[in-house]
Structures are given as C-alpha cells and as structure tokens.
Design a protein around this nucleic acid. Sequence first.
DNA 1: GTGACTTATAAGTCTGACTTTTTGTTCGTG
DNA 2: CACGAACAAAAAGTCAGACTTATAAGTCAC
Lengths: 233, 233
Amino acid sequence: MSTTGRGLHGRVLDILGPEITAGEYPPGSVLRTDELAQRFDVSRSVMREVVRVLESMRLVESRRRVGVTVLPACEWNVYDPQVIRWRLAGADRPRQLRSLTVLRSAIEPAAAGLAARHATARQCAELTECALGMVAHSRGHQLEEYLVHDVAFHRVILTASGNEMFARLGDVVAEVLAGRTHHDVMFEDPDPAAVTLHVQVAEAVRERDAARAEELTRQITEGALQELDVLAP
Amino acid sequence: MSTTGRGLHGRVLDILGPEITAGEYPPGSVLRTDELAQRFDVSRSVMREVVRVLESMRLVESRRRVGVTVLPACEWNVYDPQVIRWRLAGADRPRQLRSLTVLRSAIEPAAAGLAARHATARQCAELTECALGMVAHSRGHQLEEYLVHDVAFHRVILTASGNEMFARLGDVVAEVLAGRTHHDVMFEDPDPAAVTLHVQVAEAVRERDAARAEELTRQITEGALQELDVLAP
DNA sequence: GTGACTTATAAGTCTGACTTTTTGTTCGTG
DNA sequence: CACGAACAAAAAGTCAGACTTATAAGTCAC
C-alpha cells in the first residue's frame, strides 16, 4: 500500500520518515548524512536525495558544517500525504485521527453545500449509487463492502464541490474512514441513522438544496466526532 | 521572500517548480534529467535531487527508460506551501486565490469555535491586542500596518484552536490576506464592519462563547468571499 | 498476428575527489 | 580580562565518470 517503495531511495525514506514523525529523534537532534548512508548501506548520493525530500516536508533542515537537524513537529508539512500516512502508522495515531476528523467536520459540510450547487448529473447519480450501496451493506457484518461505498460517497462530495483544495482531501477522508473500520473496534453494523443521513445528503444534492446538504453533512461529521469521543477519552 | 534559495539545488527548484505549476509543460510531457542538468548547467546529482523533491510534491513522476513525466494538476500536492507559493506567483493566481479563500471560509469559523474553548489567557490577550491594532490602523491609508495585525489575528485564532491541521494553515491565510492588500486594488481603507467583527470575535473568544465566535468568523470569511466575487467575475 | 528474444535508453547507483560555508578555537592586542 | 581577527576543521554541497538495472520498443521466427 506504500506509495514510495520504488527504488533504493524510497525504501530508505520509508524507514527514516516514520522514525522522525514518530518522534524518535527529539527536535534539534543532528544526523550526519555520512552516518545515515552507512547505517542504511547506501551511497551518499541516495542519502542526499532522501534528506532533500525530508527537507521539503520540513521534517529536517540541512545546514553546512552542522548536519541534518530534526525540526519540531510544529514545522512539519502535516498535509503531505506521505507524512499523514507515516503518522497514522505510528504511535500517536489516535491524536492524528482526531485532528483529521476535526478537519473533516470543518471541510465536508462546506463541500456538500458547494456540491449541491456544482455537481454534474453524473456526480449526482454516483452519489445516489454510493448511498444505496451503503444501505445495501449496512446489515449483517458487511463492513468492508460498506466502507468501500462510504469512501466513494465522500470522495464524490469532495470532488463535486469544484474546489481543488477540498477534492485533494479525499485520500485523507478515506484514510480516516478506513481507520475507523479496521483499527478501532467496530464489530457492530454501522449506525442506521448515519446511513439514512447519507441517503438524505444524496437527495439534497440532487435537489440542489445546498443548505440542507450542508446541515445533513454536518450531522454526519458530528456523529463521527462523538464516536471518537466515546472510543478515546 | 523565497524559502528555498539556499544552495544550487534550491535555485533550480525555484525555476523549474513555477514552470511546471504554471502549466508550461502539458501533463504527460517527458523531461530528461540529463537535458535539464545541461539546461541549468548543474551536475546530474543536483538535478536528481530536484526531481526527487518535485516527485514528492507529485508534480512529476520519474520512471526508468522513459524519463521524468509531468503529472496532471489533479495529482499535485496542492497543500504543499511551496506549491501554493509557486501557483500564487503564476498565471492562475485568481483561481488559486479563490480556492484558498473558500478553504478559509470552511476552516476559520470552526477554528474560532475551538479557540473559544481552548485559547489560553495569553492567546486571548494577543487576540485582543491584534484586534485593537487593526482598529488603530483602520483609517488613513495605513494598509501595511493593518495587514500585519490582521494576519497576526488569524494566526492566533488558528493556533489557539488546538488543532495542528488548522494551525498549519496560518501561512496560507497570511498569503491570501497579503494578496488582497498588495496585488489586488485596495486603495481604500478596510471595511469598518469587518474591523468591528474582528473585535467582536476577540470578545467572544475571551468570553468562551464558541457559537458566537464561530458565527462572527463566518461573517468575516463570507465578507472575504463576497469581496472576491466583486473583484473577479 | 502472437509470442519470445534482443537492444537501446534513460534512470538509478556508487565512488572519490574537490569546493564552500560555517563554527569554534586560538592567538594577538587593547 | 575582554574583544576581535585570523585560522583550522568539519560537514554539507558539488562535480565527473563509470557502471548497473529496469523497461519500452523493436525484431524475428513461427
């Protein structure tokens, strides 16, 4: 599932990146390129490329005569998909999941409102299809199938908003939804109320009722927030 | 003002990055590392590092035997601060500014609501100070001083929300606000109504009135959106 | 036409030498 | 003792060249 993987460079990145985002090196720690190259048994060229990428994510900063210094978490590009993935795989996954869920609850209602105005006929159809798929798999422990349609639903909403910044959060939402189903305990079938809300959102968008689409989506994300409050204190 | 600049590598990036985000190479175009190295008169090592960074931004994809192919805009990491800066400096600045303003209007009200709950006494004081600074410079063509306080105000709100994803949008908001003052025509003093709203938001946060802080901030961002509608069709 | 084989190509990797910047120390002077 | 300038060392930065590897595309037999 890892996007990187490709090439020697990517493999090193997939080890060093998670280590840094996990906080294994306190902010201000200095790493030397040569030592890292030795440790991973790669050439300095490869190691330099890795450092450059980490630098562009603002995880580290490279300065002459001093080395590669690890930056404090407040500097990190937390919207970088790679950084998000690394952090979700790490120890502070709960905190990360909460941050992202709060972000969702700010974005998605607005996106739904815009989607009601801008969605194409095709997107409206897709939306309805997703919602029906959710209904169809909402009972009898078909969690995986339900998840697929749930993710697709939210992706369509975000895309149909017509705002590229919203659209780009599709992967984040997918990650959050998948996290809820997989990692956290979720043996029970999804909340019927939530399923109904999705159907209603699809309706509202189809009927171009922006205010209703926004309000209904707000209820969905509020539910996700409360669910999180129940699981994690 | 460029963050990169440092080093030969950064200079190349600051030329090639904007070129790509400006759409000078249609999606699917292939660039060869060697040719680029020749063009910029740098070694392949440097050029490879540049390509690696562009790849991590998902502006390009490097594949063996084919070259460095430019990816379509829907793949770009549009939340990368560097990408945002490049695009704001480019031709589709208006569209970009609109996307970011829409994003703002989704995020900031939510952030203000959270800030009302989580802001420290110090942050409340800073907020009030910023608001007063805005009032003080709201008349008599003191646009620059006004902007400084405006930016600071919104940064505090986003930080005080306690959500790192929100906090990280401080730079984006700063960029948008600065853009409004500098690039677009703005000879007149700021709208007195907006100034008052900022003061009231500071009040609401200090009084822990989350709903009011959220609603007032919504009015601020709505104003920004309408202002944009007036300037650009 | 289909499939296996070959080839050319461009990225990927490694190595070693050299340059440049920056830090910290040393030393001389007031 | 304080202060500043000269100096030395350390680590990143840069370059050039040789080699490896994956793979797209062309070739040939069937």
